[in-house]
Design a protein around this nucleic acid. Structure first.
Lengths: 233, 233
DNA sequence: GCGCTGCTGTGACTTAAGTCATCGTCCGCG
DNA sequence: CGCGGACGATGACTTAAGTCACAGCAGCGC
């Protein structure tokens, strides 16, 4: 099936993990990878399951999260095309530490851990790449811990808005940004509940720092918003 | 200095990371490693500093932690002899994501990232070992996030006591354990403040679940203690 | 013994977080 | 048009977390 392999080729090449491999090696992987399609919100794997291999995202976004017995969720990361998911449990032989689900419609490649491990042994650069990626992931987790442990929901929300402001577009009123998700999801991303998102947005609006119109938010006073973040560090 | 190298040899051999290397290779590393001694509580590196290499613990314990502007601390991990510290930032070229300090008197080996990276390229098994260790670390961090995000201080404290109970020794009164650190440090390990540790210990005692005598704690009713953990999710 | 220091216990209080219930609005669909 | 579902706002309340201040008590040095 060289045809099928050729189809997957462009994705693999774009994948950070494999960017330095030769065409031949990419084909080797492509022939051994399995494609799977997921519809929006579909579960990819669950926390606690044995981990048979790793996933490469071809299209769509994937949400990696923990859920509590009481139904609350904490998002650990959201990954997009070219990223890999579950690189790590592949190596220590343990279970998945968290669950993953597609955010929207998504197409993923699955690579068994045997194939991947032998690839790492043959091409040590790949292993180093994995380490680099995992490094980024670890930084992300440490950041979450820092926020959970030291800051308030208000602080985390402002922090998100300020980060988004960098990519929003300026208007005469201020910087305009659009929330990518509903409040339930935002809450999961900052480890709290929906109501607190709603309340804090209202409060920021009452303080004349932002203007909320549905998911569109105009940051009317960015400097003051950043200042408000420092207040209760 | 073959003599100096020989001195470091036993440690390297015991190090999880290098357990599969030949004597020759261990010597290669030993000759390029630098020994450094730290007194109790001394800073090894600070969050945000550039990361010139990784550390191997020969003796003593090392505390990896984040600190907040207001002075609070959150412990991410405590590592003992044979463990490595800062394996990860070595690879992605970034800064240290957290700080590290010796808990007690400690002796560490320092290996520059150049030496270590070339070692990984020459011996892919080492890279896989690193990945395995990093996997464990990542699980630890995810566990902290889960606790911070879903549970109360009371829950975390009970959880710690129950874990320690496995290694405590039985008496006629119950299982006896000894806290390894003062309350300030316990608080840092569970991401809270000293007062809450004190209060929660008192409360558990008032509920007849434990008996506190300084740092010695007798768990008089282990099953009930475990039950109390389930109560508030 | 005296005073210093580090550690702990606790009261009194403030504030953040979370829960529960309710209501309104928008939107799609039969 | 009217119904239902998803989403968001919000009031009322409970509880956990954190802050501040202070007191008590071992242990140590002089």
């Amino acid at each position: 099936m060289p045809g099928a392999a050729a189809n997957r080729f462009p994705t693999l090449q774009k994948t950070v993990l494999f960017s330095e491999l030769s065409e031949q090696e990419l084909n080797y992987i492509a022939e051994r990878a399995v494609v799977r399609n997921f519809e929006a919100g579909q579960l990819i794997f669950s926390e606690g399951e044995a981990c048979p291999g790793l996933w490469i995202i071809e299209t769509g976004k994937v949400r990696i999260y923990k859920s509590s017995p009481s139904g609350r969720e904490q998002v650990l990361a959201i990954e997009g095309p070219g990223s890999s998911v579950a690189e790590l449990p592949v190596f220590d032989g343990g279970k998945y530490p968290a669950s993953a689900a597609s955010v929207n419609e998504a197409k993923l490649l699955f690579i068994s851990k045997e194939v991947f491990q032998s690839l790492c042994l043959k091409h040590p650069e790949v292993a180093l790449k994995v380490l680099r990626i995992v490094g980024r992931r670890l930084r992300g987790l440490v950041g979450i811990i820092e926020e959970l442990s030291f800051t308030t929901v208000r602080h985390r929300l402002i922090s998100l808005l300020v980060r988004m402001a960098k990519e929003g577009h300026r208007t005469s009123e201020g910087v305009e940004i659009t929330l990518a998700a509903n409040q339930q999801e935002l809450a999961a991303q900052m480890g709290t509940v929906r109501e607190l998102i709603s309340r804090n947005l209202s409060r920021l609006q009452a303080e004349n720092l932002i203007q909320v119109e549905g998911r569109k938010i105009v940051i009317t006073d960015l400097p003051a918003l950043q200042e408000a973040m420092k207040d209760q560090g």
